[in-house]
Structures are given as C-alpha cells and as structure tokens.
C-alpha cells in the first residue's frame, strides 16, 4: 500500500515535469516511530503556549493563566496544529467517559454509604429518561427511611448526575469539610447516602421521604471540555416535589481548577447555616 502511494506520487511528479523528489524517500508516509510519550491530557493547558516566538511570552502566559479557553494554540494554515487537535478530542473523550461511566460500587462501599437508586434501571435509561431519574420506587424509599433518621436538621446525599468522575474526585472532601463546618455550628447532620442515576430534582422526592429542614445534594455536573470533574451542590429549605426552581440554592464549579472541594465544603456549611437561620433558600436567601 505504502509502496503504491509512493509510486503514484512519483508518477504524478514526473508527469508534472519534475525529477523525482529525493526527500520523498526519506519521509515515511505512515510513522509508528512517534508513539505518544504520556497521557495527552496530563499537560496543563494554561501553561502550554504554542505560539512560536511570542513578543511577550510572560504576558501571554498571564492571559492563559486567567482562562480555561484554548488561546495561544497557534495554527497551520487555517487548521489546528496536531497537538491541540488531539487534545481537543482527548478532552472530549474524558467528558464522554465521565457521563457514561458509573460511579464504582467500591467507591460507595469504601465510604460506607447506603446505596439507593432512582427508577432508572441502567445508565442508558438514565440518560434517555430524565423523568425516571427524578423518582424513587417504594423499595428504595423504604430503604432510605430505615437507614437515615427522618427530620434531620440537614440531610446530605451524593448523586452521580452527569459526571461520575466529579463525584469520585470531589464528593468526599467536600462532604467532610461541610460536616466539620456544620458540627462547628452545633448543627446535626443526617447520615449521608448515595443515590445512583439521580437528577437534581430527585432531591425533592428525597426531601419528602426524609423530611429534613435542609436537603443538600452533591452531584456531578454535565462535563465540558475544560473539565469533566466539576461538581455542583444544590440545597433547598423544606424542599418538596413541585416547589419552584427558584427555591434551590446552587454552588457550582467545585473542582481543583474551580473552587477546591474542601474550600467549597466549608463555604456550603455557612450557606446551610444561613438557610436554617432565615428558614428559606434560593432567591429568597439573603447573602
């Protein structure tokens, strides 16, 4: 195949009235010599400047440091260079993995959480039927009632949402800092659990089952190309099915490139405290 192509090109060149280009011999058409050295995504994009000879590298890197956008990636003609082009695809693959992979059972077990699930039977159904991701069947509701104490001041739970990676990377640190913060305020926290195949409004159902004052869910965000590890925290005071969306308070962008999990947890503790003091949440909550 390779020989054929070489021959073809040589013929074309000859027809164009040129002598055979000697460099053709030395340039292999397909190269197996350059194996990727390391994980494509391990390089920090904010520090990777591909512009050749920038007039002020320092200032450019400062701009790059301020954004996750892919600036300073240069081009070849009107197209991306190979490196950014591959990186783009690799990041997309990571985002897809985060959505399609499950939070491993071991993760839940190691933490020692009870696992319950919504009415979705598997990931495919979870992704195609958002309505089922907001409901729990009787069996799971009963399991919750048995495991958790009802009417806790604050009930925290973890849910996969649209990024299993986000949960694996951030949920535990966030929860521990949050729990410590609430303990500091003398606020009792109910036993946390894990809800598989959960969408955000599942918290309304959970709230009706357990009737805590404040419900807090740590849930994976839909991944983007900047990060697949971002987690959100949704909170509501006296949540119930059918309550206005404006009653939810949310803190998003919890990941190592946004607000770190531990710092977010400490902040969430303060927000929960305010909800308990003001007996409200969402847009009605005063800062």
């Amino acid at each position: 195949m390779e020989a054929n192509i070489k021959q073809l090109i040589a013929d074309v060149l000859r027809e164009m009235g040129q002598t055979e280009n000697p460099s053709l011999k030395t340039v292999p058409l397909s190269s197996t010599a350059e194996e990727p050295q390391a994980d494509l995504t391990s390089e920090n994009l904010r520090k990777q400047l591909l512009v050749p000879d920038p007039s002020n590298r320092e200032a450019y890197l400062k701009f790059k440091g301020a954004t996750a956008s892919r600036i300073g990636i240069w081009r070849t003609g009107p197209r991306y260079l190979t490196k950014p082009s591959l990186r783009f695809r690799a990041d997309h693959a990571i985002a897809q993995d985060a959505v399609f992979n499950d939070v491993p059972e071991e993760f839940v077990k190691e933490w020692g959480l009870l696992e319950v699930k919504t009415k979705c039977s598997d990931k495919d159904q979870f992704l195609t039927r958002p309505d089922l991701g907001r409901q729990l069947d009787d069996e799971n509701a009963e399991a919750l009632r048995e495991y958790c104490s009802e009417q806790a001041k604050v009930q925290v739970y973890i849910s996969d949402g649209l990024s299993s990676t986000a949960v694996e990377k951030n949920a535990k640190d966030t929860f521990l800092a949050l729990a410590q913060g609430l303990e500091g305020y003398g606020i009792k926290v109910g036993k946390p659990f894990f809800l598989r195949y959960g969408r955000v409004p599942a918290m309304d159902v959970v709230s009706q089952i357990l009737r805590p004052e404040v419900t807090v869910v740590l849930i994976g965000e839909r991944p983007g190309l900047a990060t697949a590890e971002s987690m959100s925290c949704y909170m509501a005071y006296n949540a119930s099915v059918g309550m206005p969306e404006a009653n939810r308070t949310v803190i998003s962008n919890i990941h190592r490139g946004g607000i770190p999990g531990v710092e977010a947890g400490a902040h969430i503790a303060d927000v929960v405290k305010k909800m308990l003091d003001q007996k409200t949440s969402g847009l009605d909550l005063k800062k």
């Binding site: 800092a177 500091g184 770190p260 710092e263």
Partner: peptide, 18 residues
Amino acid sequence: EKDLAKVMGQTLRSQLGF
C-alpha cells in the same frame, strides 16, 4: 496564597476547641 482559607480556618478553630 491558594484558595483554602475558609476550610483551613474552620479546621484550625475546630482543632483548637473553638
């Protein structure tokens, strides 16, 4: 310098028995 002060302060206070 890093964004850590809230959790660090909270942890310090907790370890110092408030």
